[in-house]
Design a protein around this nucleic acid. Sequence first.
DNA 1: ATAAAAACGATAACCATTCTCAGTTTAAAA
DNA 2: TTTTAAACTGAGAATGGTTATCGTTTTTAT
Lengths: 162, 162
Amino acid sequence: MENRVERIKKQLHEQSYKLTPQREATVQVLLENEEDHLSAEDVYLLVKEKAPEIGLATVYRTLELLNELEVVDKINFGDGVSRYDLRKEGASHSHHHLVCIECGTVDEIQEDLLAEVEKIVEKDYQFKVKDHRLTFHGVCHRCQAKAKKNEESAEAASLHTN
Amino acid sequence: MENRVERIKKQLHEQSYKLTPQREATVQVLLENEEDHLSAEDVYLLVKEKAPEIGLATVYRTLELLNELEVVDKINFGDGVSRYDLRKEGASHSHHHLVCIECGTVDEIQEDLLAEVEKIVEKDYQFKVKDHRLTFHGVCHRCQAKAKKNEESAEAASLHTN
DNA sequence: ATAAAAACGATAACCATTCTCAGTTTAAAA
DNA sequence: TTTTAAACTGAGAATGGTTATCGTTTTTAT
Ligand SMILES: [Mn+2]
Ligand SMILES: [Mn+2]
Ligand SMILES: [Zn+2]
Ligand SMILES: [Zn+2]
């Protein structure tokens, strides 16, 4: 994990940006919450624990910068805030998401899955694909299990009363 | 096209909503700009031509309502505004988009293309898919043609000077 | 050391969207 | 028809995430 920061630092230097303490703390927070999809405010609160003097504007600036460097993806799940999602190292495109309409959880899909579809798009629409965004809306495995359980206990209760 | 409005009206009544003149004018504007991806402000300005007394809040309310009825999809291309996209009649899920990173144009893909991918998602991730959002970012056919043309004329010029 | 460039924190400004509220329209009941 | 309650509306205030501004601090090059 330590070298991950090093490589991001190198990436910054290549474009003559600096890895300031504030930026490093922000990157750390993103690495420590790789699974999550934090808003700028979320990141701000977490970074404050490490670097209490940091300002919200700096967090926004840093996230913007990391987005340009393709270290993070700025994504929008329609809840009124932008969320920042660390890319897998060296990933050439952003991964996919599963948004549960029952509990709101967001799960990730790291597999590509779109290779065939992109071929069709490039051929049939003459569109040179550089990146993509794919989000599925539906019911997550946890909520499905919960629903099934409720169904069963309702059935058992019904047997009792009959 | 006239019956399209009629069917939307029926859909509204089923849920005990009314098709007020303001709502009808808004639906008309959406139908007349089916290819586009209008923001609330865009819709507001266009509706004002038909119904100058309409308020912006009403446009927002109507678009929200049409979104709930799945007549339109509320989408976000990351430019700071929500855009409203009429669904093809009877479509069970939203269509895909091609966003050009050169000229900003948004083209549509009406083909499904995701049937196979969704099967995998349902099986491997135990996720019951209800809808999806798929956007490709890249270079549209127009910009590719333009680039090619520029390349050729540069080559011709270079031959001349050599 | 000195000067120029980058970056920072605080906070004001911006602006898309939502909320509030008093008045109007609609559709069903009387 | 009138009556009445609920749905709906327009104007504009409020909200809240994000960006811009500005004076100060830190970094880098001279
Ligand atoms: Mn993710
Ligand atoms: Mn569309
Ligand atoms: Zn769930
Ligand atoms: Zn283009």
